[in-house]
Amino acid sequence: MMADFDQVLSCWSAVEADYTGIGGVVMTSLFQQYPDTQKLFPKFAEIPPDELAGNVAVAEHGAVLLRKLGEIVKAKGAHVAILASLATTHVNVHKIPISNFKLLKEVIIKVFAEKVGLDADGQTALSSVLDVVIADMDTNYKELGFQE
């Protein structure tokens, strides 16, 4: 498992170099591939699909997401405190079902393959890392009493 974190980190400088650009692609792709997810973001809910890609707020949210993901990946599995805080806000404030993180996982892997050249082995490593993160988030969700 540690090798998976290391493999993901080996491409992370490319992600850090363009958090906003890549983050915008992640969020836009999520909303276009899974339109129901856009409704979970009140400030983005009314943006027409053809205006998502150029929306500064969407890109900035994507950058926030990728910075947090970077923090989680750099923790190399020691992410309990990071996820506890994240789960609390996503349950109590945003009310985001855990299933949406699984959709996001697929989008992130595809975008990283396209935008930072993540090869097949890297995609497998990223998938494994995100599976652990999502499972740990799910544990937090259950502890917080969140039901989908």
Results as ranks from 00 to 15, higher is better:
Met1Val: 13
Ala3His: 01
Ala3Leu: 05
Gln7Thr: 10
Leu9Cys: 03
Leu9Asn: 02
Cys11Gly: 07
Cys11Asp: 08
Trp12Cys: 07
Trp12Gly: 04
Trp12Lys: 10
Trp12Leu: 05
Ser13Trp: 11
Val15Gly: 04
Val15His: 02
Val15Gln: 05
Glu16Met: 11
Glu16His: 12
Glu16Lys: 15
Asp18Trp: 06
Asp18Gly: 13
Thr20Pro: 00
Ile22Asp: 06
Gly24Glu: 12
Gly24Lys: 08
Val25Ser: 07
Val26Ala: 05
Val26Lys: 03
Met27Leu: 11
Thr28Tyr: 05
Thr28Gly: 02
Ser29Asp: 07
Gln32Thr: 14
Gln33Asp: 10
Tyr34Arg: 12
Pro35Phe: 14
Pro35Thr: 13
Pro35Glu: 14
Asp36His: 15
Asp36Ala: 15
Gln38Thr: 03
Gln38Lys: 10
Gln38Arg: 10
Leu40Asn: 07
Phe41Asp: 09
Pro42Ser: 14
Pro42Phe: 10
Pro42Leu: 13
Lys43Thr: 12
Ala45Gly: 05
Glu46Lys: 14
Ile47Met: 01
Pro48Val: 12
Asp50Trp: 11
Glu51Arg: 14
Leu52Cys: 03
Leu52Lys: 04
Leu52Arg: 03
Gly54Trp: 00
Gly54Thr: 00
Asn55Ala: 03
Asn55Gly: 08
Val56Ile: 12
Val56Asn: 07
Val56Asp: 11
Ala57His: 10
Val58His: 06
Glu60His: 09
Glu60Lys: 13
His61Gly: 05
Gly62Leu: 05
Val64Gly: 10
Val64Phe: 11
Leu65Trp: 08
Glu71Trp: 06
Ile72Leu: 10
Ile72Thr: 07
Val73Gly: 01
Lys74Ser: 10
Lys74Cys: 02
Ala75Leu: 04
Ala75Val: 02
Lys76Ala: 01
His79Lys: 04
Val80Met: 15
Val80Glu: 15
Ala81Arg: 11
Ile82Glu: 09
Ile82Leu: 15
Ala84Val: 06
Ala84Leu: 04
Ser85Leu: 09
Ser85Thr: 14
Leu86Tyr: 11
Val93Phe: 03
Val93Ile: 15
His94Ala: 01
Lys95Pro: 00
Lys95Trp: 01
Ile96Val: 15
Pro97Lys: 09
Pro97Ala: 11
Ile98Ala: 12
Ile98Ser: 09
Ser99Asn: 11
Ser99Cys: 12
Ser99Phe: 10
Asn100Thr: 06
Asn100Val: 00
Phe101Arg: 05
Lys102Glu: 02
Leu103His: 13
Leu104Cys: 06
Lys105Ser: 06
Lys105Trp: 02
Lys105Arg: 14
Lys105Thr: 03
Glu106Asp: 14
Lys110His: 11
Lys110Glu: 12
Val111Lys: 05
Val111Pro: 03
Ala113Gln: 11
Glu114Ile: 04
Lys115Arg: 11
Ala120Phe: 00
Asp121Met: 00
Gly122Arg: 06
Gln123Thr: 06
Ala125Asn: 07
Leu126Thr: 10
Leu126Val: 08
Leu126Trp: 02
Ser127Lys: 09
Ser128Glu: 01
Ser128Thr: 06
Val129Pro: 01
Leu130Phe: 04
Leu130Cys: 07
Leu130Ile: 08
Asp131Val: 00
Asp131Pro: 03
Asp131Trp: 00
Ala135Phe: 06
Asp136Gly: 08
Met137Leu: 15
Met137Thr: 05
Asp138Met: 07
Thr139Tyr: 01
Lys142His: 01
Lys142Thr: 12
Lys142Gln: 06
Glu143Arg: 08
Phe146Ile: 13
Gln147His: 06
Gln147Cys: 06
